[in-house]
Design a protein around this nucleic acid. Structure first.
Length: 307
DNA sequence: AAGACGAAAGTGGTTGA
DNA sequence: TCAACAACTTTCGTCTT
C-alpha cells in the first residue's frame, strides 16, 4: 500500500483519515486520496499483557476532540503517591501546581468548548468525523484569538456548522440553533467570520445533500428519493438553483417527486421538515413545472387515478 | 373541511455607492 | 454607513377536492 503524506492535488499535508469508511481525504481540497484501505487493527496477537506492551508501537490516537489533542502529560493523582518519601512528595505537589498554572485560559476555554461541542454534536447525531473537523476549526479559531468578543457557544455552533458543510452532511441553521440554543443569525455571523478569518473555503451547499434526510423523515420510498435527485439535477442545469435557498429547492423537488410516485405529502408536511414555508415550496414547485415540463408526468398520474 | 394557490406587505441579509 | 434589492416569510382571501 502506498503511503501518502501529501495531497497530490493541492500539496496540502492536511489530510483527514476516516477509519469507518477507510478513506483518506484532503481537508483542503476535498480530494479522496486513498479509499478501500485495508485493516487497521493490530497485526499481532497478545498472549499476555507484557507481550502487548512490547509490541505496541503507538499511544492513543491523536484527536482534536481532546483539548490537548490527547497528548498532554498528566501528573497523577494522590493514589499514585503511594511509596514516595517526603522530598519526592513535595516535588510532586510542585509539579501539580505548575501543571495547573500552565493550563492557561486558552486550554481551559478549549476544554469547556469541546464539552459543549460534544453535547450539540450528539444531539444532532453528527458523525464523529464532523465533530473532529469542527473541533479542529474551533482550535484554530481560538489560537487566532477569534473568540474574543464573541460567546464561546456561538463560535462552537459556527464551527460545527462549517464542519457539517465541509463534510456534506448539512444541517440547517435552524437545527444548529435549536441544538445549541444560539440565535440563528448569531451562528450565521460567527460562521461567516470564522471561515473568512481562517480562510476556509466552503462549497455552496448542495440541495441534493438534504434530500436523503428530508425524505426519510417524510418516510418516502427510495424511488421517490432517486427521482427527486434526478429532478434536482435537471433544475440545476436549467439554472433554477442559483441564488435560491438550497432547502427550498430540495423540498420542492421532493414534493414533486412524491406526487409523481403517488406518495403524496401535503405542502405543509414537506415544508415543516425542510424548515421553509409552503409558499416557498409553491414558488419553487411552479418554477420546476414551468421549466422542466413535468406537467405531463403529473397529468399521467391524475389520469391513472381516474381509471 | 382541508389543502392548494396567489397577492400583498413585512423581515433580515447582501451589495454597492 | 445608508439605501436599494432579492429571497423568503407571514398573513389572508379564494378556489379546488
Amino acid at each position: 500500500m502506498s503511503y501518502v503524506k501529501k495531497c497530490p492535488e493541492c500539496g496540502s499535508i492536511n489530510l483527514f483519515f476516516n477509519k469507518d469508511k477507510g478513506e483518506i481525504i484532503c481537508k483542503d481540497c476535498g480530494l479522496v486520496i486513498e479509499d478501500k484501505m485495508v485493516d487497521f487493527t493490530q497485526e499481532w496477537r497478545e498472549f499476555d499483557s507484557e507481550d502487548g506492551e512490547k509490541r505496541r508501537r503507538t499511544g492513543a490516537p491523536m484527536t482534536y476532540t481532546q483539548f490537548d489533542q490527547g497528548m498532554g502529560t498528566d501528573i497523577g493523582r494522590k493514589s499514585e503517591l503511594y511509596g514516595l518519601g517526603g522530598k519526592d512528595r513535595n516535588k510532586f505537589f510542585r509539579l501539580r501546581k505548575w501543571q495547573y498554572r500552565i493550563s492557561t485560559a486558552i486550554e481551559r476555554n478549549l476544554k469547556l468548548a469541546l464539552a459543549e461541542m460534544k453535547r450539540v454534536a450528539s444531539y444532532l447525531k453528527l458523525p464523529k468525523s464532523v465533530e473532529e473537523e469542527s473541533a479542529r476549526i474551533y482550535t484554530l479559531a481560538v489560537q487566532k484569538g477569534l473568540v474574543r468578543g464573541r460567546s464561546m457557544e456561538s463560535v462552537v455552533a459556527g464551527a460545527l456548522y462549517a464542519a457539517c458543510r465541509r463534510h456534506e452532511v448539512p444541517r440547517t441553521l435552524d437545527e444548529l440553533s435549536e441544538a445549541s440554543g444560539i440565535e440563528k443569525k448569531e451562528i450565521g455571523r460567527t460562521y461567516r467570520f470564522v471561515t473568512r478569518e481562517l480562510g476556509i473555503t466552503i462549497l455552496p451547499s448542495n440541495p441534493a445533500d438534504y434530500i436523503a434526510r428530508f425524505a426519510s423523515s417524510l418516510k418516502l420510498s427510495a424511488d421517490t428519493q432517486t427521482k427527486a435527485i434526478e429532478i434536482l439535477d435537471k433544475a440545476q442545469r436549467a439554472e433554477l438553483t442559483s441564488g435560491r435557498g438550497p432547502t427550498g429547492i430540495a423540498a420542492a423537488s421532493l414534493y414533486v417527486s412524491a406526487l409523481i410516485h403517488g406518495e403524496k405529502r401535503t405542502q405543509r408536511e414537506v415544508a415543516d421538515v425542510a424548515g421553509v414555508t409552503e409558499v416557498t415550496i409553491r414558488n419553487r414547485y411552479k418554477e420546476l413545472l414551468d421549466k422542466l415540463n413535468l406537467e405531463k408526468d403529473i397529468k399521467k398520474i391524475k389520469k391513472r387515478k381516474k381509471k
